[in-house]
Design a binder for these strands. Structure first.
Length: 641
RNA sequence: UACCCCGUGGUGUAAUCGGCAACACUACUGAUUUUGGUUCAGUCAUUCUAGGUUCGAGUCCUAGCGGGGUAGCCA
């Protein structure tokens, strides 16, 4: 097979919002002592420090990293951390970063994922230098395996999977030698070639590295290098019936690509001695593996297995459900690549196994959208407001000028039709209101955003006592921007003219789980029991005319409510908006507090932590209750990835 | 009860050679505001514990405690 793919420069649509800062910090890679010419104080995490040291000592002459996903699922926010790290380091230090698919297990992998992963990396704003597949290296790997066999460093083992497990020993007891360990190199070579030729059924034999069956590090107890699996591979077809294990493929692929820093997550820490062993025995380029803590976020699950389960059991609409922490999910939710990158930069890199508060993610997108999202008005829970003296105005409709972004003059303004018949938010009116309620009440006044001040003099109710109409007069002296009245009102509310409003669908998304750590479940329950039943509420809404021009993917702020994005489900005349994140809601806090209500009532609905944070002591845990006594018995199956 | 890694505010990350525990977020106060948004100002720490070395310890040493990971022919 072709051992490597040439540079893949076929990406037609490199992201438009790509971080333009890429080239300007291209520091001299040989200068590890002062890579910060700007003089600006930057924190260098431990990986960066290790790189600086290796560059300074001459161990490596540059920075070459890689992002190595297995194409067996969609990328999630945890992968984004790794992507930002690997690509970011290469950018900062003038190095390169490859995208390599770790496709060594055809029973689990699929081209569907190969495509989505590439799209996600690009969308995040990164461009790989080379695109590779571990399967491109299968020939080289096999040659190296024969070399190790001939040098007496590997042997063919006849043990079944179950026997292999028994012979391996336990955490507290050493293992025993496999009978195959005493084969001659010639015997092993013959057996290996016959394995490759397909003479043996699945599971009949393995090739194993000959290291040390008594090593306290179980990865060194003669790890399997090849297993037999008569399964076609999505790229190599049926050429192979033996497939390399992760440890045997990964480091060697790194080596072939001349990677200098092989950055991975903490659970591979005890694989590092094996990574090193292979490179040493083969006498090939030897990258340095460095491990960091994977990302955990409150109110979410991150394991591929659980995400897959959510999709397969239809707890969500798919991998791109806006509640999923997948990149496709976040994209559909309306998150920007910039905000995800900012989040990843914000949370740092360390070896401590921490859990990031999800509000930091929410805050990152809020911060970015505050700068770039045009403001619009939308009423999600409408009640009619009639201006009883509007006839005095002369014309039935007046166009009002509204600023698009108060923080950005260059965003300009737009015209909104104002009339005597408006929709306002039901929440924004109370017949009798507490002192701190700044919105409209009977006998009170409020400003209509970009419009006039109105005074409420009456309400109309139906037979059940529900308010159906609010009657106000407007004050002609108080037109927004031309107010000559000198009147001050405490509140400003949003509105939409009834005759000019468009009806749209709004999907208000909230956190998928209602507890901080969904993985922390009592006996007999699963993380699914923590799904937030109110994570999606769909409603009709009235929006101002300017929104009719919005395209799929456009993000706006519905004033006083939150940030919204036009969903791909939108059709002509039937727009669908997803809530990306709500605005900070100080009023909800005040209201909750005065009611002594610890939960609910906020714009985010259930799941928002209100006042009721659980736990008090330090909870630096990823998982709980998973502590396994070293009983000498294998634990029940558990999966993280 | 084997081996490896990790313990700094509510959360996360810093702290040059051992020298005033800093930054960000949250929370809480207050100011500003035609978004209860934004912005601005302020408040919140026995550096896991106990010893030791030192003029001086988050940092070095010893012991303990706590958390995470590891026994796939997964990655």
């Amino acid at each position: 097979m072709n051992a490597s793919r040439p540079n893949d420069h076929t990406q037609p649509n490199a992201p438009t919002d790509r971080d333009a800062a890429a080239p300007d910090h291209a520091a001299d890679p040989n200068n590890g002592s002062d890579p910060n010419p700007s003089g600006e104080k930057t924190h260098r995490h431990f990986i960066r420090q290790a790189i600086d040291a290796d560059l300074a000592s001459g161990r490596f002459d540059g920075v070459r990293t890689r992002f190595p996903p297995e194409p067996n699922g969609y990328l999630h926010i945890g992968h984004a951390k790794s992507i930002c790290l690997n690509f970011g380091l290469a950018q900062e230090l003038g190095g390169t970063c490859n995208l390599r698919f770790d496709d060594t297990n055809p029973t689990k992998e699929d081209t569907e994922y190969v495509d989505s992963i590439q799209e996600d990396v690009r969308w995040l704003g990164f461009q790989w230098d080379n695109l590779h597949f571990a399967s491109d290296y299968f020939d080289q790997l096999y040659q190296w395996a024969e070399k190790l066999v001939m040098e007496g460093h590997a042997y063919v083992c006849d043990l079944t999977a179950e026997q292999t497990r028994e012979y391996r020993g336990t955490l507290t007891e050493p293992g025993r030698d496999s009978p195959g360990r005493s084969n001659t190199p010639e015997e092993n070579l013959d057996l290996l070639r016959r394995m490759k030729a397909g003479e043996f059924p699945d599971g009949a034999k393995t090739l194993r590295a000959k290291i040390d069956m008594a090593n306290p590090n179980i990865n060194l107890r003669d790890p399997v290098m090849y297993r037999i699996s008569h399964v076609p591979h999505h790229r190599t077809g049926d050429k192979w019936c033996i497939y390399p294990m992760y440890d045997w493929a990964h480091g060697q692929s790194d080596s072939i690509e001349k990677i200098t820093f092989s950055i991975c997550t903490l659970e591979f820490e005890h694989h590092r001695p094996l990574y090193d062993w292979y490179c040493e025995k083969l006498e090939i380029h030897h990258p340095r593996q460095i491990e960091f803590a994977r990302l955990n976020i409150t109110y979410t699950v991150m394991s591929k297995r659980k995400l897959l389960q959510l999709v397969q059991e239809k707890h969500v609409s798919g991998w791109d459900d806006p509640r999923m922490p997948t990149i496709v999910g976040l994209r559909r939710r309306g998150y920007t690549p910039e905000s995800i990158r900012a989040f990843c930069a914000d949370i740092g890199v360390a070896k401590f196994n921490s859990t990031i508060d999800v509000v930091r993610l929410e805050n990152a997108v809020r911060e970015h959208l505050n700068e770039v999202a045009p403001r619009r008005m939308a009423v999600l829970d409408p009640v009619k407001l009639t201006i009883t003296n509007w006839a005095d105005h002369g014309s039935p409709v007046e166009m009002m000028s509204a600023i698009n972004n108060p923080g950005d003059e260059s965003a300009g303004s737009r015209e909104i039709p104002f009339s005597g018949s408006l929709w306002i938010e039901r929440d924004d009116f109370k017949e009798e209101a507490p002192r701190k309620f700044f919105r409209l009440k009977k006998g009170g006044a409020v400003r209509l955003r970009a419009g006039y001040i109105v005074d409420c003099h009456d309400v109309v109710k139906d037979d059940d006592g529900n308010i159906t109409e609010i009657l106000c007069t407007y004050d002609p002296e108080t037109k927004s921007g031309e107010d000559t009245s000198g009147r001050k009102v405490k509140g400003t509310i949003h509105w939409v003219s009834c005759d000019h409003a468009s009806e749209v669908t709004v999907r208000n998304y909230d956190r998928l789980f209602s507890v901080e750590n969904p993985d922390n479940v009592p006996e007999g329950k699963t993380f699914l029991d923590h799904i937030n039943p109110d994570s999606l509420s769909t409603t009709k809404a009235y929006v101002e005319p300017a929104l009719c021009e919005a395209k799929v993917g456009d993000r706006v702020q519905f004033e006083r409510l939150g940030y919204y994005v036009v969903d791909p489900d939108s059709k002509d005349g039937e727009m669908v908006f997803n809530r990306i994140v709500g605005l900070r809601d100080t009023w909800a806090k005040i209201a909750n507090k005065s009611e002594g209500n610890p939960k609910g009532g906020g714009k985010q609905g259930a799941g928002k932590q209100g006042g009721g944070k659980q736990g008090s002591g330090k909870q630096k845990t990823g998982k709980q209750g998973g502590n396994q006594p070293a009983s000498g018995k294998p634990p029940q199956a558990k999966k993280t990835d």
